[in-house]
Design a protein around this nucleic acid. Structure first.
Lengths: 342, 342
DNA sequence: CTGAAAGCGCTAACAG
DNA sequence: CTGTTAGCGCTTTCAG
């Protein structure tokens, strides 16, 4: 429990941490009684309970849950594997999940994969070794071994954010492809035809890739196709990618009438480009994003976008995880937000 | 280790998870030998090593670190207590810390306090019960009991983000008060005199409060004072708070020539208000924020703000935590970014 | 180089 | 209502 490196001695020379046995001895009772009191399980006389509580406080005793977990074979740890933390959407999902987990006395152990499937696989193994009561992971795409481990680990697994694909156990999210399709249909219904795409690296952000797929499929269904697109390397979405990406795209294709962005960060970057260069939105150029970020509805012209219930995804995911019901897919849908940019 | 609720039986009827003993038996060796191989400690003949590795893979064995931790008395868990995840700055600090921790084989156990000191106290106790190898917490303000627990827990504690105050062990951050002061001096040097403040709830976001203190102190030193201020309830900063807050403030005080915002989110909201209402920036009204967010330098007019090295804070904090050196304060400073909004 | 045995701190029957 | 006794699955001496 201590660091490998030496820790400067605390003032109280007693180097060993107090244990349940210490409390029991000091209170003149058996260990199991202390355990009962501390976990509010089984019945204990009021007097001994108080005595024990007093000693616990006096000794500043903090139970060792590592030992408790091992002995009881039930963990209060939940593994969480996410692709990134910088991203705005992940923290929101996390916040939703965390709220539910904490209320139920669970603590998340998190791992960040940086959108790297192999890293994710290692993280899953590593986290599984803590024998968590459940696992929350982002997305449906994992290495073969990662899937095998999650299937065989004996605890519930929730895959979040996306519903397009084969799930392992519980899936909570919304269809990315459908979101892309609806975005396209919205633009087409408004008579935009010369449409371009500005995105970040789609081979890395699989969900953005699926949205783009859905978007293109809808184009094809209408006998159209994306005029041109500009992809920005790097898994992290960014305002700058949208801004620079749009500039580059317009240089090649000055006659576009609408742009589909891989998400709101990019779209806002594109919007800033338009503001700065006097491109009138949506008259000259329409813009459409994805996520429904707060900031996207507060720009001088609210952005047209699609909002997914991110916090709810986290909450529902965590609830289903703890509920222990059937394997299932919970499609939480999304909402098309009619801004004024398209 | 399993969920309290029943888990649907896995296909492989074997309900008990494989243990080190299983591996040992199957490989025809002693448990300690398996342990040695799996941890690369002590010497084992090449042949038995390979045999053991094979069995481990065949059985899909995942070591139980709960047991390992208990037996070895050394943990690979690091406790992390943060006030929020929605906030842009916390995830960046977290990312920096996480990188260092993962590289060293540590896993973060996180708790989110929602800016509530009592919640923080509970979380610290709860996390300490996992006997982490160290603790990373945000800020220097904690309840008395929380401080006592952190002092007496026997592991290194790092307090992040802020250096204005009494630390427990290691402190990594930058002076919030100085940041506020420098912001003020910058505005004064540019001859702004009729200055207003738009912020969120400062009693909750202590660091924003300290910046405001520093700002006001600099005003006072120059024989000036804030003309008026607009405070928005709620601990979470938001673009909307800045936008609405500025609108309200200007209604009361139409003659202000500069606004100091509690952070960039608010400042961007204020900037959007100006854009929409044709208020020329900085001619009519100058704006100044805090954080140095990416988006703040990509708006049509880059925002004047102060950037703190958030990722570096996380990295340095984690490194110092693992290094096991002296208690110390690492002031990582900040950088004033001259945008064009003031 | 390898195995046996003794715990780590706590929980969970089982007796009283 | 309360104490005693076995472990949980692993690491760690300590002998061989």
């Amino acid at each position: 429990m201590t660091l490998d490196k030496p820790v400067p001695d605390e003032q109280d020379s007693q180097s060993t941490v107090t244990t349940l046995a210490d409390v029991a001895r000091r209170a003149g009772v058996g260990e199991s009684t202390v355990s009962r009191v501390l976990r509010n399980k089984g019945s204990v006389s009021q007097s001994t309970r108080e005595k024990i509580l007093k000693v616990t406080a006096d000794l500043n005793y903090v139970p060792n849950r590592i030992a408790g977990t091992l002995a009881s074979m039930t963990s209060k740890l939940i593994g969480v594997v996410i692709p990134s933390v910088g991203n705005t959407v992940v923290p929101e999902v996390l916040a939703g999940a965390n709220q539910v987990l904490e209320d139920a006395g669970f603590q998340p152990v998190i791992g960040v994969s940086n959108y790297d499937p192999l890293r994710e696989e290692q993280l899953i193994e590593s986290i599984l070794s803590w024998r968590p009561a459940g696992l929350l992971v982002a997305g449906l795409e994992h290495t073969e071994r990662a899937r095998a481990m999650m299937k065989g680990c004996g605890v519930r697994v929730v895959e979040l954010l996306d519903t397009d694909g084969e799930g392992i156990d519980i899936v909570v999210g919304s269809s990315q492809r459908l979101a892309g399709r609806k975005s396209c249909e919205h633009l087409l219904a408004r008579n935009y035809r010369r449409i371009g795409y500005v995105g970040h690296d789609i081979t890395i952000d699989v969900r953005a890739g699926k949205r783009f797929q859905g978007f293109r499929a809808a184009m094809t269904d209408n006998g159209l196709r994306i005029i041109d697109s500009e992809l920005f390397p790097g898994g992290a979405s960014s305002v700058e990618a949208g801004r620079v990406g749009l500039a580059r795209l317009l240089e090649r294709q000055p006659n576009l009438d609408a742009i589909y962005f891989s998400n709101d960060d990019l779209a806002i970057g594109g919007y800033f480009h338009c503001l700065e260069h006097g491109i009138s939105v949506p008259g000259q150029l329409a813009l459409f994003g994805y996520n429904g970020l707060e900031i996207a509805r507060l720009t001088p012209q609210p952005l047209s976008t699609i909002r997914s219930p991110r916090v709810a995804m986290g909450e529902v995911g965590a609830k289903l995880l703890l509920a222990g019901g059937q394997a299932q897919v919970a499609d939480l849908g999304f909402e098309l937000i009619m801004g004024v940019t398209s």
